[in-house]
Design a protein around this nucleic acid. Structure first.
Lengths: 123, 123
DNA sequence: CGGGATCCCAACCGATACTG
DNA sequence: CAGTATCGGTTGGGATCCCG
């Protein structure tokens, strides 16, 4: 009863996950808890304000991230995962682990151009 | 010791997973096993040959998908998950489940514009 | 049957400048 | 501090045609 090609529909659903920085944002929010905008920027060098803002808006609209604005003179905005967003925690952490392993794998493959003559100095 | 912002690096790693159809491809290959090119197209209406081919090439290059060409007059090419690719199975299936739930959630939210006064004509 | 070659558009992403 | 506005580059994805 699950043989119907709804795999495609699900992939479509996961479009909200894609977006170059969304995964990183969620991982950081899960890891650090509530974070200010500048803190997010700090742990994610390489992302611009505009992009970070838009990605946060997307996640907010999906109900995954909560945005709290403190109306004070130096603006202060805090982001955190919603209850619903936390339902992604396991998946995200598994992706994190897999991604790390995958990086290592790719790095190792760079050092094994010739296969077996280096047995003690493969970095 | 894991406080360093490698969350970003991992997100970068997951770039190979993103791509509008890669998740669907992998889910189908896991679900159905070995599949021919045309079979993949069949279970994924909406994807063109070019895109499907390129996404398969990406996955193949990452060592996630195996491509076997049978040199015969009507060409025959079979795709399947590699051993390494199967290490993603749990993640992919969790994404599948979450995606389905997320779709339902969004659908339900469309029917709850006003919360409780419409019980027979909610369109 | 499987897919390469081309053209093209839309979306995403980045840099910079400006604002409450 | 936390954005918005604008412009522009790059890329992914789609349509169509053609080939072994």
């Amino acid at each position: 009863m699950d043989n119907t090609p709804d795999h495609c529909r699900v992939a479509t659903t996961m479009e909200m996950i894609i977006g170059k920085w969304k995964i990183a944002i969620m991982l950081n929010l899960i890891h650090y808890g509530t974070m200010r905008f500048s803190e997010l920027r700090h742990v994610m060098p390489g992302v611009t304000q505009k992009v970070l803002t838009s990605q946060l808006r997307d996640l907010e609209q999906e109900g995954i991230v909560k945005r709290v604005v403190y109306p004070q003179v130096p603006p202060k905005v805090e982001y955190s995962m919603t209850e619903y967003g936390m339902s992604l925690q396991t998946i995200l952490e598994m992706m994190h682990e897999w991604g790390k392993a995958h990086l290592q794998r790719k790095t190792q493959m760079l050092f094994s151009k010739d296969t077996d003559n280096q047995n003690d100095k493969n970095n």
